[in-house]
Amino acid sequence: MGKSQRRKAGGDQFDSSDADSVSSISTGLLELANDTECLNSQEFELEKYIDDLYEKRGSTREKALSGLVDAFEGHVLFKFVENKFITLLNQYINSIKRGSTKEACLASRAIGLLAITVGAENNAHEIMEESVSHLSQALISGSDARKKSSVLDCLAVVTFVGANDLAETEISLKAMWQVIYPKSGPNVGLVKKLPSTVLAVAISAWSFLLTTISGWRINPDNWKESVAFLFTLLEDNDRSVRVAAGEAIALFFELGILDLHWSDHIDIDSLNHEVLKHGMLPYMQSMKAKILAKANDLSVEAGGKGTDKKKSQ
């Protein structure tokens, strides 16, 4: 009778362990099925968004772009875009060219996220090559401040991720500089004064790209105009513009453009003799002294003095 009870107890113990194992496997399979269903559902939704980008109704495209932006911000969708990035890019560019301000802003953000997702490889370079000319055209073809700001940010990101050399980076830097300093562009008479909000964004985007040129040889003469104009912006009425200009000028110090006598990035012997003959070196040294004096004045404002507290609240 004791043996019978022990057998029964052993049988119960075995059955319980076996049931736990089955339950664990079932739970794992259920979770896997749920994950698979979730992935399939997400991919179906993303494909639907892509289809909606072809719709004529602007509100439908805006909704699709918003959904895609949210998806790319919440997940790493590398596998999804691996063979679709050109299709997405073309539709995003179309939205910038023909869409409303909201649609263009969403599309600009979407292009930046697309470039970041594919990474610093050939695909990112292709995104940059395909989009830079369209983004540059969008900067000069319209006057909407929100659209310009979004396109500037987009241009900075795609160039930062996709550019392979200084020449490619300089194309985007030039397009941005023509927004910052319209007199440097071809359509001087057609350009209206830039709103302070856009000017600050443009300078910040330009400075962001400027950080990438430190590994390449720099000819300081190419930056005389930039240094001089940014210096004038240190007196601008808008604080955000003054801050952006100050940060850009700080980069010139960091890159050694204002310190020609010691910069490792500059080969004095290789500089054009005409440049030296016209006093580029004394000019830069003079600008450096003026900037340092102005920076000392602005340091008071940076500490909170000289600002309108009502405006900052």
Rank of each mutant, 00 (worst) to 15 (best):
E82V: 09
E121P: 00
V151M: 11
T211V: 14
K193V: 13
I127F: 07
A205H: 03
Q137F: 09
S150F: 01
S108H: 10
A115E: 05
V81W: 14
A175Q: 05
S149I: 14
Y181E: 14
I140T: 15
E126T: 15
V132I: 13
A107E: 09
E126F: 05
N94Y: 12
P182G: 03
L152E: 04
F85T: 03
I140V: 14
V191P: 00
Y181D: 14
A163Q: 08
G119F: 04
K102L: 04
M128G: 07
G99H: 00
A138M: 12
V81E: 11
Y92D: 14
V132P: 07
L190R: 11
N123S: 13
K102N: 08
I171K: 15
L88D: 02
D153R: 11
K183I: 15
A124M: 02
M128K: 15
K192Y: 14
L199H: 01
C154Q: 11
S184P: 10
R109E: 15
N94H: 11
E168M: 04
T169V: 15
L155F: 09
S184D: 15
K147V: 14
G99N: 02
L106E: 13
I213P: 04
L114T: 14
L190S: 14
K84A: 06
I86A: 05
S108Q: 11
S136W: 07
S95C: 15
F160S: 13
G99I: 07
P186G: 06
A200R: 00
K183Y: 05
A163H: 08
L152F: 05
G99R: 00
K174T: 14
V151I: 15
